[in-house]
Design a protein around this nucleic acid. Structure first.
Lengths: 243, 243
DNA sequence: TTGAATTTGTTCGTATGTATT
DNA sequence: TAATACATACGAACAAATTCA
């Protein structure tokens, strides 16, 4: 083990008043590094050793700071390769909501119900914009997705991927990426938590598939009210499960 | 104590295939600790030393895991006191959006615009539910807040706190805590980023204040459309700034 | 295919600041 | 004031993954 190693101080903690509350200052420094250089997702960050030098803190501190940024999806780390700027997704949002849902005490399903209500609200909220853009349109990709859902549902398979993609593509037409991400994120919270709680999907599946088709039909016809009704029908099975 | 520490033994990395992608397994273990015992926000967690024992990992690993959970607001740490279960707020969501807004390259304001659009959408989305619950109601707290905004705006002061509280209280009447938190979070993203980008608040302030009053008036009258129009008017000044 | 270099992952030991008693 | 319990920080060594010659 060759301890040797003279204590000798090395004199750390000289400067730096260490304000822990906000964000450990090392975190802030790395954030600034990204901001100042205008780095984009995927761009490489300095290695741990380099950050130790530049910031004048220990490797442990650098690592803890990076860990924080990773958990916020602001940076990404690949073992043996290096760290890059993350894609800043809503993954932390999903993680938090999933944890809350799992921790819900009494009724257990409170958070989950709120998630579904939010999804329904946002899907309805964009009715006018969608009608405006899609009236008379063909939307072959979306139709194809509905068709695939239909096939898989009759085959007894699940069609989560198609379902998520459907909502992603549809919301894409409103031109608000954040709203799209939010809906997809809420959708993921559902799909993660529902199986974990052992809630079996009933045979309302067919209704759900047809609701997707009705949404498209209403949009093509330019009928915002019919679209909203289809959205309600779309979520009815889920609500039934959660009550 | 005083185990004296044998060399061999201890020997980590025996089991545990170490799947880094998901969440470092130590993070997962602490999560499970909370979940299994059904701990609530504020409940105490084991000390670092105890976690080192229970989980059979090093101090550094425990610290990095805790750092991750802190940044997700799943746990809280008070220096010299201990760690507790966090309140699982949407703080990480806010942090991420603020960072994205600051990093936005070209038009710079894309993310911020999307945030405002989302706020507007959610505020409008709950029109029917609010009308249903508040028709003919007095709402003295909300009126008082509008009055305070009026005072402070004429005094040339800012009224961010009253504004935020107004939306929080209003959304509270729809009975979806998640939606309320989301709107408040989006509101905070605005207030953090706008000053950072050096966007001065114009004199449309008075319009904003009156829009708040109009929203209440419309709700009292049970007029959902008038409420939605007031919401649009409420956000008009903000949109003007961002374009 | 081997193997060295680079980089992140994990651990141990130690010293220090801070809050509680 | 002192003691205790706890979190914060530093540094060195080794393990594991990745890349490239």
């Amino acid at each position: 083990m060759s301890r040797s190693k003279e204590p000798s101080a090395a004199n750390p903690r000289d400067a730096i008043p260490r304000r822990g509350g906000t964000g450990s200052s090392t975190v802030q420094a790395i954030k600034s590094h990204i901001l100042d250089r205008g780095l984009r997702p995927g761009d490489p960050l300095p290695t741990e050793a380099e950050l130790v030098q530049e910031l004048g803190v220990s490797r442990s501190s650098v690592r803890e700071a990076i860990r924080t940024l990773v958990s916020l999806d602001l940076v990404e780390v690949r073992h043996g390769h290096g760290t890059t700027v993350g894609n800043m997704s809503l993954a932390p949002f999903i993680t938090g909501l999933v944890f809350r849902s799992l921790l819900n005490p009494d009724g257990h399903l409170t958070t989950l119900r709120e998630v579904v209500q939010l999804r329904e609200g946002i899907d309805s909220m964009v009715a006018l914009q969608l009608v405006e853009r899609l009236r008379g349109e063909e939307m072959p990709e979306l139709e194809a997705l509905v068709e695939r859902m239909r096939e898989r549902s009759t085959a007894g398979e699940s069609f989560m991927e198609e379902d998520q993609e459907f909502h992603r593509l549809l919301l894409n037409h409103v031109g608000n990426d954040l709203a799209t991400e939010l809906v997809v994120a809420l959708w993921e919270v559902n799909t993660i938590v529902v199986p974990l709680l052992g809630i079996a999907a009933p045979d309302d599946i067919r209704d759900t598939v047809e609701a997707h088709g009705d949404m498209l039909k209403a949009l093509r016809a330019g009928d915002a009210d019919a679209y909203r009704q289809a959205v309600v029908a779309h979520y009815r099975p889920l609500h039934k499960i959660l009550d």
